[in-house]
Every structure is written in structure tokens, then in C-alpha cells.
Design a protein around this nucleic acid. Structure first.
Length: 427
DNA sequence: TCTGGGGTCCTAGGACCC
DNA sequence: TCTGGGGTCCTAGGACCC
């Protein structure tokens, strides 16, 4: 029996964050909108009609006035809202396809092999319409024999939105080759700026050129990653659908401060706060961590500012998820890192060397986390799940810190906070 | 005043072992 | 004059992604 040919779909939400904001602000249906990064730093999402006015990544403080003149509305990022909308979209897709891999907050790969009927484009439209009807979020669908090609098809669906209606199927070799010839190599999934420059020199300019290049030469010149990309483009699947998401190998919490910090105390508070958040994520995936890397840094852009960046690794006595132990270790690291005389802009807490309980062996010299600590952490998580994050926390974590990030343009948590539901007035 | 945050995978090179 | 070689593990750093 021959294996049925694989079919992948990539479903991707259009301008996701901006679309989420618009769902709850129908008055802005015709107004261009952008969403800003944490700290209202730079633009990370633009509605379709905002694209001509704003570059991706543009610093907000530089373009603020221009936006106002152009009538573009800006929002602070509202992750509670986007996370919840994402779950809704994903569960709709999940109910319609045999298998799903959630690739990011706004993208998912689906396995369509074995879908009955030969009109996959029609099936793609059905997915698209259902999601739009139930959530108000517009999506694009790309369908192809490999994941890399599905990405390309999705890209084409967006580029030729009017013609394609947001769904493109390139399983057919004719359509596939047309797409490959009409896509620059830099647009291919896995080919970044650096690699594009190298490939350019070799005369590889389009996706088709890469698909036709010799895989072994690519492997030698670049790496196995590039080899796989080329094979995928030519129609040989090298990447599988990853359904279960494996526990993370690293967990990170890093943020810019709302303002520059010059003394050690608030930096210790920030590091304690980031450690708390990272430890929550750690426990959510049921892992333990053995090492923590803490780093702090000054601003990197302003040439007038003295620059300093440093990090330190701390080892915990045993693999743990006890926020008390972790906070103590992390804040002690700050004492070693801090140098007076600098204006600090950011701290980062990175949990490393993660393991599942039972994955390491106890011996005479290393012991494991006491049962008591586990009980305390369970109670902590239960209380915070019920009453909101930060209800119960370490004393070193302030409720309303002076260094909190700026979020001046935040929309409501329409879907996750009972006090912030939509208000409807009847006149 | 002001430029995000959170990940993955791969590779080269050093440390260490026999 | 001459100073092994092969394997493994770990780490840092590069490149990429959304």
C-alpha cells in the first residue's frame, strides 16, 4: 500500500492584533489602526488600511504626531484579549480538521490528507467563513504538499487577496511552480536577511531557484536547515505536523521598564516580578528548573547614554519550581550585576536546564524539592487562578511599581474580565 | 523621555575522558 | 625531531520565526 500524499494547510489570521481590536470596535471598521509593543514602544501590528501610513517596527514616539494627522488610531497591546481570541479561533479549526498544530498565537498548520472530496479550495473557504462568522477574525488559508509550500501558498493568498478570496491551493504542480517562480527567495519561510544575501550571490533569487538548487551543496554551504527548506519547496516533506506541544526547554520573562532606573532596589523588584511570572509558566508546564540566568542592561539606542549590559547564571540547589527559592537566587544575582552610574532600561530572567519531575535521579548529594514546597506552590497557583494573577505574591513584588510599563492606549479585556464586558446602550 | 518579547534549532569549539 | 585520536557533552553564539 502506498502512503497517501500529504496535504498541509496553513491558516493565518490577518493583522491579528489589529483585527481583535476591531472586532470590539465596529466604529473603527473604516479607521486604520495599529497595535504597539509592550511599553508602547513600537508598532507590531497594522490593519490592512494602516499599512500605507506606518512601517512595521516604527518607534511610536517618532511617529505619534504623524499618526494623528493621518487619522490612524493606536492601541497598547492587550494580550489577555488576543490570547482569548486565539483560543477561540484554534478550537474552531480543530473541530474541522483531522489534526492541528498551533504554531503561534495567530497561525496553525492543519493536516488535510484524507479529507474527502477533491476540492480543497472549497474546504479552505469553509474554514475561513466559519472562523469569520463565529469570531469576526479574517484569516488566510494556504494549502500544499509540504509545510514550507503551505506557507508560500498562504503568502500568495494575501498578496492576491482580491483574486483568491484568501484561499490558495498549490497542490497542483502547475500552480506550485507558478508560485515558486513568482516569489522572491527572501519571502521563503526559514530564509532570513542573512541567508538571502548569501543566496543572492549564488544566483538564487526566486523560490524556484532554491527549489532547484542541489540539496547537498546547500547543506555544505549553509546547514541542514537550508537543505530541508529546499527539499520542501520541491515537494518532498521534511517537516511533520507537531501536534502535542512539548514542554519548553527555556522559559523567559523580560521587559523594558516604563522609565529608566538608576538604583538597585527597583531593579531587584522588577527581577523578583519577572521571576514570579517565569515560575508561573514553569509550573504551568509542570517542569522544574535548575539554573537561572539574570541579565540587566541600559538603553541601547541613545548614543548619549553610557552603555552597560551584563548577565549572571545562578545554580539552584536542586531542580525546583518554588518561587521563593528562585526569587532569592535571582535577586542575589542582581547584587553582583548592578553598577551604579548607569540608567537601566531592561531586565531579563531566563529559566534554563528545565526538567520534568522524575527525569533526574536523586543521589546522596543532590536532593529533590521538599513535598511541602510543592503544596505551597499549588495553593499559590490556585489562589491566583481564582482571584487573579498577583493576588498572592512574594513581598519583594510590588503591586503598583514605579517602573511598570507604559500602556496608555489599552482597550478593555472584553472577553476575560467580567467587569470589562461590552456595554450596550439602548436609547 | 521614548526603539518588544518569547521562543527554536544548529554549529563550532572547548573541556574532558579513555 | 618528536607531543594521538576519537568520542561525548556542554556552552555560546548565530540565524530565524512570529
Amino acid at each position: 500500500m502506498t502512503k497517501p500524499e500529504s496535504v498541509f494547510a496553513l491558516i493565518d489570521c490577518n493583522s491579528f492584533y489589529a483585527s481583535c481590536e476591531r472586532v470590539f470596535r465596529p466604529d473603527l471598521a473604516k479607521t486604520p489602526i495599529v497595535v504597539l509593543s509592550n511599553n508602547d514602544g513600537c508598532v507590531i501590528a497594522r490593519s490592512y488600511d494602516a499599512k500605507p501610513f506606518v512601517k512595521m517596527g516604527a518607534p511610536y514616539f517618532q511617529i505619534k504626531d504623524q499618526l494623528r494627522r493621518d487619522g490612524v488610531i493606536a492601541f497598547s497591546s492587550n494580550y489577555a484579549l488576543y490570547g482569548d481570541m486565539s483560543e477561540r479561533v484554534m478550537s474552531i479549526i480543530e473541530s474541522m480538521v483531522p489534526a492541528l498544530e498551533v504554531y503561534s498565537i495567530d497561525e496553525a498548520f492543519a493536516d488535510l490528507s484524507g479529507i474527502p472530496g477533491d476540492d480543497l479550495t472549497a474546504f479552505g473557504r469553509q474554514i475561513r467563513n466559519t472562523i469569520y462568522k463565529r469570531t469576526g477574525i479574517p484569516v488566510g488559508v494556504g494549502i500544499a504538499r509540504t509545510k514550507t509550500l503551505a506557507k508560500l501558498a498562504n503568502h500568495m493568498a494575501k498578496r492576491l487577496l482580491a483574486k483568491t478570496g484568501g484561499v490558495v491551493d498549490i497542490c497542483d504542480p502547475f500552480n506550485r511552480d507558478w508560485t515558486l517562480r513568482n516569489t522572491e527567495v527572501g519571502e521563503v519561510w526559514g530564509v532570513g536577511k542573512r541567508m538571502k544575501a548569501h543566496l543572492d550571490v549564488m544566483g538564487i533569487k526566486t523560490a524556484m531557484d532554491l527549489a532547484k538548487a542541489d540539496p547537498w551543496t546547500l547543506r555544505q554551504k549553509f546547514s541542514v536547515v537550508m537543505e530541508k527548506t529546499a527539499r520542501e519547496l520541491s515537494g518532498t516533506p521534511c517537516l511533520e505536523l507537531g501536534e502535542a506541544d512539548p514542554p519548553k526547554q527555556e522559559i523567559c520573562c523580560s521587559r523594558m521598564f516604563g522609565s529608566r532606573l538608576t538604583t538597585i532596589e527597583p531593579i531587584r523588584e522588577a527581577v523578583a516580578t519577572y521571576t514570579q511570572r517565569a515560575a508561573e509558566k514553569l509550573r504551568a508546564q509542570n517542569s522544574l528548573c535548575k539554573r537561572i540566568r539574570v541579565s540587566i542592561r541600559t538603553g541601547m539606542f541613545n548614543p548619549e547614554e553610557a552603555k552597560y549590559a551584563n548577565g549572571a547564571m545562578v545554580e539552584l540547589p536542586y531542580p525546583t519550581n518554588d518561587v521563593r527559592l528562585m526569587t532569592k537566587a535571582a535577586t542575589e544575582a542582581v547584587n553582583c550585576l548592578f553598577r551604579a552610574g548607569f540608567k537601566y532600561s531592561k531586565a531579563e530572567v531566563l529559566l534554563m536546564d528545565l526538567r520534568q519531575p522524575g527525569e533526574f535521579t536523586d543521589d546522596l548529594f543532590t536532593h529533590s524539592q521538599p513535598v511541602e514546597a510543592e503544596k505551597v506552590m499549588n495553593v499559590l497557583d490556585d489562589i491566583n487562578a481564582k482571584w487573579g494573577r498577583g493576588t498572592l505574591r512574594a513581598a519583594s513584588v510590588p503591586a503598583a511599581p514605579e517602573w511598570a510599563m507604559r500602556q496608555d492606549l489599552m482597550s478593555q479585556s472584553f472577553t476575560t474580565q467580567i467587569g470589562q464586558l461590552w456595554t450596550v446602550r439602548c436609547n
